[in-house]
């Protein structure tokens, strides 16, 4: 069962919720994997403090002529949807940062001269946090495209996960390709939101993303005692179940800022997480066979 914890808006509490859920379930002797898919600013490790088992460099494919001289038919340039390869006077010019690694140019080359070579863009970390399986992805500084790396860490963390394992994916914020890569595989998308106009606005986008991807969705309202009722009304109108409301709690903020697990410092917060976890599992029974 794969749960993606997502939000339209950043800073709503995705990592707080997903690390807490993963910890709670792992401590309750469930098989759990936590996946930090926010590869542009991963921070789940600050709270789960895993022992690193393996760090693997992640590569994407880019085309190369390997120094050969071609007849410059221009077919590679013609087929590229991203203007990432130019055919020029017996050679090609590849713009790595524009290339999506689709391989169309390699297939299109009439001479079969183009090959794919790997280009490193980031690191996938696999670790253990007291019996909790931990994965995270970290994009290299200066890299522009994070989506392949996110798909990579989602694949690495889920390929051997059996149906009983609970996989909690901490998705990047927003609703672009990077967020979709962390959500499209999920059995259930948990949207973390807040009752502010910003939260409401970005929640609409996140709901549209989930709908477009055909995902089952549920919500949790964080800092539920601030703002107004627009977020609740929106969720009700869309028939999205609200599994828990978590009021603002200074003890949680202080604990989190000290990279502790706030469940240990606030019993109110801990009971919200327990309630949320139960809600997710009962929803899941309607999801997985």
């Amino acid at each position: 069962m794969i749960i993606s914890v997502a939000s339209g808006k950043g800073g709503t509490g995705k990592t707080l919720i997903s690390t807490s859920l993963a910890r709670l379930w792992a401590d309750g002797n469930k098989a759990v994997t936590y996946v930090d898919a926010d590869a542009e600013e991963p921070n789940g490790h600050l709270f789960l403090k895993p022992d690193v088992i393996e760090e693997k460099r992640f590569t994407v494919k880019i085309p190369t002529l390997e120094g050969r001289t071609c007849a410059a038919h221009g077919k590679c340039q013609e087929i590229c949807a991203f203007n990432a390869i130019l055919s020029a006077k017996g050679s090609v010019i590849v713009f790595d940062e524009l290339c999506h690694g689709c391989g169309a140019c390699v297939l299109a080359c009439p001479e079969g001269f183009l090959q794919e070579t790997g280009r490193e863009i980031g690191t996938i970390t696999h670790g253990d946090s007291n019996g909790l399986e931990f994965y995270s992805a970290t994009l290299d500084v200066g890299e522009a495209r994070v989506t392949p790396l996110i798909s990579g860490v989602v694949e690495a963390s889920t390929e051997n996960a059996d149906g009983d394992r609970l996989v909690v994916i901490d998705a990047p914020p927003g609703t672009s390709c990077s967020a979709m890569a962390a959500v499209e595989i999920a059995d259930l998308v948990l949207l973390v939101t807040e009752p502010t106009p910003f939260g409401e606005h970005d929640l609409i986008l996140a709901l549209e993303m989930g709908k477009a991807l055909g995902r089952k969705m549920a919500a949790v309202i964080n800092r539920s005692d601030i703002g107004g009722d627009g977020t609740r009304a929106l969720l009700e109108a869309r028939s999205i179940p609200v599994l828990a409301e978590i009021p603002f709690d200074r003890a949680v903020a202080e604990s989190y800022a000290a990279s502790r697990m706030p469940m240990e410092d606030s019993s109110e917060f801990a009971s919200s997480i327990v309630k949320l976890a139960q809600g997710l599992l009962s929803l899941a029974q309607g999801v997985s066979p």
């Binding site: 221009g74 340039q77 203007n83 990432a84 130019l86 055919s87 020029a88 010019i93 713009f95 524009l98």
Partner: peptide, 19 residues
């Protein structure tokens, strides 16, 4: 043709120049 490209308008236009 690159005027509406999301990315790579510059390289696309350069390809047009080459052509």
């Amino acid at each position: 043709e690159s005027v509406e490209a999301a990315h790579g308008a510059g390289t696309g236009a350069a390809a047009t120049m080459s052509g």
